[in-house]
Design a protein around this nucleic acid. Structure first.
Lengths: 143, 143
DNA sequence: ATCTTTGCAAAAGTTTTGCATATCC
DNA sequence: GGATATGCAAAACTTTTGCAAAGAT
């Protein structure tokens, strides 16, 4: 995401009534430049945030604020920490169990039918699903 | 799972060469009686383990041992701790975002085709997938 | 006898909280 | 001015580790 798109996103969020303070903007802009979901620690290590000297507590508070507003999504891929990413469009992850690389894929899986079936058979109303694939990435598959 | 089934499971695992010491058996038997995935803290709180006075470190070590052997599966449903359950048969979870109840569902979703497509387009070799549904359970849907 | 597991206590790591100050509208 | 966010430090919580003792084959 380039700087223009980022500013567009931030003003869009501001229009929706979100108070976007410096800490929150910094978190958003780090995540907008990341190519994969990041942990709180990784976000804090980012040069962007280091330069702006944002406190750890602020990062955590910004993350939960933004998650509660639906701007960010919290992922817990197997194993490690809590990972956050911008909640822009529905997608899935390919998680390499060897090198731990995370790739993002977009594809339309026909889960709607199954979500209807779940409603009928259990009464559960599905609001969202999380589908992640674990295995070996292209490089690790070859070794 | 009743006591007979549990003993069968334990001797099956022992046959596979797993050293099933008292701590590990206790963890397995707690999870065998649980109706949902449990956190390390919940496992330790279990009356079973309290009676047998198993150390916290042993519980953690048993959990990672059993997970590494494929006996347990580690789940990280969005939000809270690490949850473990017996890895008996492939299934999915319905997670209520209001009351946090977790239901287990078994259904056959045709993801194999999509896993082949992923292989072709990205080179990633899918070994397993995790599919979880978030929403409102029957009771919470009605309120 | 050797190798592995356990208990204990301490350490490491992550996330949350209280409070005073600063910022925003 | 009133409400909300931030920084700092301390606390709370979860998970891991070192080491000596106990257990397993």
């Amino acid at each position: 995401m380039n700087k223009n798109e980022l500013n567009k996103l931030i003003s869009l969020l501001a229009q929706q009534g979100l108070l976007l303070t410096s800490g929150r903007k910094a978190v958003i802009s780090v995540l907008a430049q990341a190519k994969k979901p990041l942990s709180a620690a990784e976000i804090m290590e980012s040069a962007l945030i280091k330069k702006e000297k944002i406190n750890r507590a602020t990062v955590y508070r910004s993350l939960s604020f933004l998650e509660s507003k639906g701007v960010l999504e919290l992922l817990r891929l197997s194993g490690d920490e809590r990972l956050y990413h911008l909640n822009l469009e529905h997608h899935h992850h390919l998680v390499c169990t060897l090198c731990h690389k995370i790739e993002v894929i977009h594809f339309c899986n026909q889960l709607n039918t199954q979500e209807d079936e779940i409603k009928k058979s259990t009464g559960f109303t599905v609001k969202k699903h999380v589908l992640e694939f674990y295995g070996l990435c292209r490089e690790c598959s070859q070794n």
